[in-house]
Design a protein around this nucleic acid. Structure first.
Lengths: 205, 205
DNA sequence: GAATTAAATCGATTGAAGTCGTATTAGATT
DNA sequence: AATCTAATACGACTTCAATCGATTTAATTC
C-alpha cells in the first residue's frame, strides 16, 4: 500500500504539464523556422502584403503564403482583406502567450543539486518496480539492489517481530517468484535479522 | 537626396532583430519537438539518466541520447557523470532566456491599425523604388501609380517655378529612361501644371 | 583482467516540412 | 462582361530530422 502510493506520486507526469505542452508545442513549431521568424520581424514593424514579404525575403509568393498560413493557424498573425490584397499583421498577444508559457516552465526550478542524492532512491525503485508495485527484476548491481531492498524493508514495521510466513506474505507482494531470494538478501545485507533455527524475523535498526 | 534618406530609414531591417533571431532560432528549434519538451518536463521534476528517460518515454536510449545532445547544445540541459551514469539536469536559465527574447519581440507592438493607411505610401514606394532611390518600374495600377508620382513630386519645392530642363534633370534622378513619361503623368494626374507653349512648370497645391 | 553496463556514435530508414512552379480562386478594375 | 491581379491551393521535389539497430567507448564490478 505505502509502496504503491509512493510510486504513483513519484512517477506519474502531472496533467498540467501535458496541457501546457499541447498549447506550447504548436506555437513553438510555428516559430522554429528562420523564414517565419523573419516574417514576424517584418510584420512587427508594419503590416505587409504577401508580395511585399516575398520580395523582401527573396521567396516565392506561394511559399510566403504557406508560412503565413502556418503562423495564422496559431494566431501569431492575422489577415485583413483590403482592395484585392491581403494585409497581414502581427499579433503580439499570441507571442506574449508563448513567452509566458516558457517562463512558467522555466520557473519550475529543480531542487538544488547539492541537496539531492546523485541517485535518488525512488528513481531506482521506479525502474525496477512496475506501476503495481511489483518487482520486475532484481538489480545486478549491489548499489541498486540495496536500494530496492530498502524499499521492500519499508513494508515492515520497526520493532515488530514477524513469523517466516508473515515475512513471506509481505515479500510475495513484491515478487511472487523471488520472495525467498528477497528474504535471504534482506538478511545478507543486514537489513533484517532473525532468531536462529527458523524463528521470528525483525527489522534491524 | 531627401528621397534616399526617407527610403533608407523606411526599408532597412534593423540589426538588433537579426541578432535576436540568431540567438532565438536555435533555442526554438531545440524546443519545438514533442519528445524534447517531454524530456524537459521530466528533467524539471528531477535529474534523470538516459535510460530512465528512455524507459519513461518508450524510446531507445540512443534516441534519447540524441535529443539530450541537441538540448545540451543550446544549454537547456547539462550532464554530470556520476559513477558510470550520465545524470542530466534541466537548466532553467536557458529557458528563461528564450522566454525573455520572445517577450521582447512581443512588445515590439505595431502601431494601431486604425491610424495607418491600409496601404502606407512608403510601402508602395519601397516596392517600386530601388535602394538607390531610382524607379524600377511604373506601377500599372492607378492607385499605386499615384503614390509613386506623389513621391517624385516631393522633389519639387512648392511655389517655385521650374524650366522644362530643370524638371527633366530632377525626374531623371528617378528614371533615366522614363523621365518624359513621368513628366507627362505629373501633368495628367494634376500634380503639376505648366504654362502653355512649353513654358515653366510648378507644383499644384 | 574479464565481464558487464550505460552512454555515445554511426549508418540507414522513414516521415515531415520548406520551396518551387503551375493552376485556380476571389476580388477589383476597365 | 471581360480582363487583370494578388492570393491561395495543389503536386512534385528535396532537404532535414527523428528513430532505430548495431557498434564502439568508457567506466565499473566481480
Amino acid at each position: 500500500m505505502q509502496e504503491q502510493q509512493s510510486i504513483q506520486s513519484t512517477g506519474a507526469p502531472t496533467h498540467n504539464q501535458n496541457e501546457h505542452v499541447q498549447e506550447l508545442l504548436p506555437l513553438l513549431k510555428a516559430l522554429a523556422d528562420e523564414t517565419r521568424l523573419k516574417v514576424i520581424g517584418l510584420l512587427a514593424t508594419r503590416a505587409h502584403t504577401v508580395e511585399q514579404l516575398a520580395e523582401t525575403l527573396g521567396l516565392r509568393a506561394s511559399t510566403v503564403s504557406h508560412h503565413l498560413a502556418r503562423l495564422a493557424e496559431v494566431g501569431l498573425v492575422s489577415a485583413r482583406p483590403s482592395s484585392y490584397y491581403n494585409v497581414y499583421r502581427f499579433e503580439p498577444q499570441a507571442l506574449a502567450r508563448a513567452a509566458t508559457l516558457l517562463s512558467e516552465k522555466a520557473q519550475q526550478a529543480p531542487p538544488p543539486a547539492e541537496v539531492r542524492q546523485p541517485f535518488a532512491e525512488d528513481t531506482v525503485v521506479k525502474r525496477y518496480l512496475g506501476p503495481d508495485g511489483r518487482l520486475r527484476a532484481l538489480p545486478a548491481q549491489q548499489k541498486k539492489r540495496l536500494i530496492v531492498l530498502r524499499h521492500c524493508l519499508a513494508a515492515f514495521e520497526p520493532g515488530r517481530r514477524y513469523t517466516q510466513n508473515e515475512v513471506n506474505d509481505i515479500l510475495r507482494e513484491f515478487s511472487a517468484e523471488e520472495y525467498v531470494t528477497l528474504r535471504r538478501y534482506l538478511i545478507d545485507y543486514g537489513l533484517m535479522d532473525r532468531e536462529p533455527g527458523g524463528g521470528e524475523y525483525w527489522r534491524v535498526e
